[in-house]
Design a protein around this nucleic acid. Sequence first.
DNA 1: CGAGCGCCACATACCCGGTATACATACTCG
DNA 2: CGAGTATGTATACCGGGTATGTGGCGCTCG
Lengths: 205, 205
Amino acid sequence: MSIRHGLLALLDQGPRYGYQLRTEFEARTGATWPLNVGQVYTTLGRLERDGLVEAAGEDDEGHQFYAVTHEGRAELRRWFDTPVPRTNPPRDELAIKLAMAVTVPGVDVAAVVHGQRRHSMQALQDYTRLKGRALAADSGSGGDLAWLLVLEQLIFQTEAEIRWLDHCEARLAQHAERAATAAPSGPAAPTARRAVKSRDRGRTR
Amino acid sequence: MSIRHGLLALLDQGPRYGYQLRTEFEARTGATWPLNVGQVYTTLGRLERDGLVEAAGEDDEGHQFYAVTHEGRAELRRWFDTPVPRTNPPRDELAIKLAMAVTVPGVDVAAVVHGQRRHSMQALQDYTRLKGRALAADSGSGGDLAWLLVLEQLIFQTEAEIRWLDHCEARLAQHAERAATAAPSGPAAPTARRAVKSRDRGRTR
DNA sequence: CGAGCGCCACATACCCGGTATACATACTCG
DNA sequence: CGAGTATGTATACCGGGTATGTGGCGCTCG
């Protein structure tokens, strides 16, 4: 639902047409999340269908303008007022991958962690370099606050990811060590296949 | 592509049927990403269509089993060998929201940040409590390493999010201050609407 | 004892987001 | 002038997410 609301927010500044929205969206989130143009038109269609937006005529060049409706403004206010739910966050592919890696036998977990760490470090450096450029370009008054904040979000998240990977490495070592001391000669049940019935770990809500 | 590969990894341990896969998937990623059963069947269908998986008969109770093919195993190995790309990461709704909040006039950005911070703190506490429970339940040898790692990933990410929110607050204050000193009596262009043409901030790749 | 309830199991429909692509016009530069 | 590039709109297709429908089976409780 982020694109939907993002476009709504942009339209709140006044009527816009499709391509223009794409341009303005990318000016804020930049290269990190390039927005496919097609997405804009389909989303506008859905917004219009749901009554949050309405066609507002064409200009002399044939650009189809859209404007927020009253209901659209209400929806926008609701979006800003309620926090994005961080209980059940979006699936993270890396987390799933590691969860699988430590479970299925025959996967070199340490190698997976290392490979990912190198890649994430590279990404972090790229982001940091971009941030430096953004700060330099913007030496005067804060021109592109939005872009800067998005960049810093990426930096914070990537740093956390790297720390987590290091933490995983430590935990894996500790885990291996424990297994070794527990069963010095041949582990009793190295990858003890739990019975399928063992579901119902305590759910949240 | 994470579910696709996740199921593939589970099937690598031997033939399974649909519901069983859901159960085993949730045993690892737990309450955080509850997997809808329907998703399993549609994904299995696609995997079969793509030749990564094949039907492996039914048992006496009519359960339709699936098994990885040779090509499926190759695909799985490829998945583990290549890091998940952290350049162009998935869209983060919170980042988009703040990017919009600082751009469109008439939004109380500080309130948005604060509301989100409280919510994220709550989520962090929930995760920490879950982790405590997981560690207690698992006092012996590491029974549920996967679930623990996933939990810790969430904790690390949420901590980073909170730090980022605090950072945003600081940056906003500094930004407001700069604007005040730059133009003591009425800011020259408070929300300087950049011309639409100002695209092409330096792209990555 | 049998009516409901909840779990197991499979299937389908629908929506949204992501990507590619088709197609048309205008400008620019060698 | 023609090729390439930017502007602009539209559509098709895929994968992921969610809700819902449909049975069968076992358990519990009045």
